[in-house]
Design a protein around this nucleic acid. Structure first.
Lengths: 144, 144
DNA sequence: GCTGGCCTTGACGTCAGGGTCAAGGTCTAC
DNA sequence: GTAGACCTTGACCCTGACGTCAAGGCCAGC
C-alpha cells in the first residue's frame, strides 16, 4: 500500500509518516516510480508507535518497541529493552505525579491564604473575627 | 539597579529579563546612556513571577499577578483575577494528575502483561503456576 | 589609553512533532 | 487528452521560554 492509505489506516498523516521515516522509525520500499510501498507489518508497527505516543512516550522511547517488532517478535514489548522502557516510564510518571501533587498542595495553600486575606480586608460576614488580625490590614496601597 | 544586578538578585538571567520586557511583563526606566534601571518594586514583581514559574505557571498566567502588583496591591494575589488563575491552575493540575494516573495504570498493565507473556514463553521457575493466579507471581522479575 | 566587564539591539537556535506550501511527477478515469 | 487525485522532495512555520552569538557602546581602574 502507499503512504496515503497507510496514513488513513493508522489514523495519522503522510507528513507524520515521512517524519517517522526521517527519524529512522519507519522504512519503506520504493516502487518503480519512487512511491513508498508498505505492508501489513508496517501497520502493526505504526499502531505500536501510536499507542505509545498516546501514552505520552516520546518518539525516541518507541524505538526499542519498533526494533523488537522488526526483529520478528510477536509484540513490540516482547523484548527486555521494551520492558525497561515501560519501567522507566512508570518511574517517570510516578515522579511527575508526585511533583504535580506537591505543586497542587502549594497552590492550594496560596489560594486559601489569599482568599483568607481578601476576606479579612473586606469582611462580608456579620461575625467579628477574633483579635490578632490587625497586622494584615495592608490594603491601603501607598501612592505612586 | 541595572539589569545584571536585578538578574542576580532574582536568580535569573539578563536574557530572561529582556524577554519578560518583550512580553510586556516588566518595564524599565532608562538611564542617560540607555541602560535599563530598576527599583525594589521590580524585585518583588520578579519574585512573584519566578514563584509562579516554579509552580509551572505559563508566563501569560503570571500577568494578572503582575498587574495586581503594579496596581499597588500588597501582593500579586490580592486581586480577583489572580485568584481565578489559582483556581484554574488547580483544576488544570487535577486534570493533569488524573490523566497521568490513568496512563500510569495502563502502562503498568501493559508491563504486567508483557512480563507475564515473557515468563510464559520462557518459564524460569520450578513451580508451575496454576491457571488463574499466575498474575500475582510477577513481583520477582523473571528475566535479567 | 587600554583592558575588562557590563550594557545595548537583533537575529538565529533549541526541543518535539509535526502543519502547510510550493513546484512538480505519476497514474487513473472519463 | 486532460482533470483530478495521489505521490515526491524541500523548505518554512508553530509553540515556550529562553540560550547563544555578533557587533558595538559605556564606564571604572590602572
Amino acid at each position: 500500500m502507499r503512504i496515503g492509505e497507510l496514513a488513513e489506516r493508522t489514523g495519522t498523516t503522510t507528513r507524520t509518516l515521512r517524519y517517522y521515516e526521517s527519524r529512522g522509525l519507519l522504512s519503506a520500499r520504493r516502487t518503480g516510480n519512487g512511491y513508498r510501498a508498505y505492508g501489513e507489518d508496517d501497520v502493526r508497527l505504526l499502531r505500536q508507535i501510536r499507542l505509545l505516543q498516546d501514552f505520552g512516550f516520546e518518539l525516541e522511547q518507541t524505538r526499542p518497541f519498533v526494533e523488537c517488532l522488526r526483529a520478528g517478535h510477536p509484540a513490540g514489548d516482547s523484548c527486555p529493552a521494551s520492558l525497561e522502557v515501560y519501567r522507566a516510564k512508570l518511574a517517570e510518571l510516578d515522579a511527575c505525579i508526585a511533583g504535580l501533587q506537591a505543586v497542587r498542595e502549594q497552590v492550594g495553600a496560596q489560594l486559601a491564604r489569599a482568599e483568607l486575606e481578601a476576606g479579612e480586608a473586606e469582611p462580608r460576614c456579620e461575625l467579628s473575627p477574633g483579635p490578632g488580625r490587625a497586622a494584615d490590614q495592608l490594603s491601603g496601597s501607598p501612592a505612586e
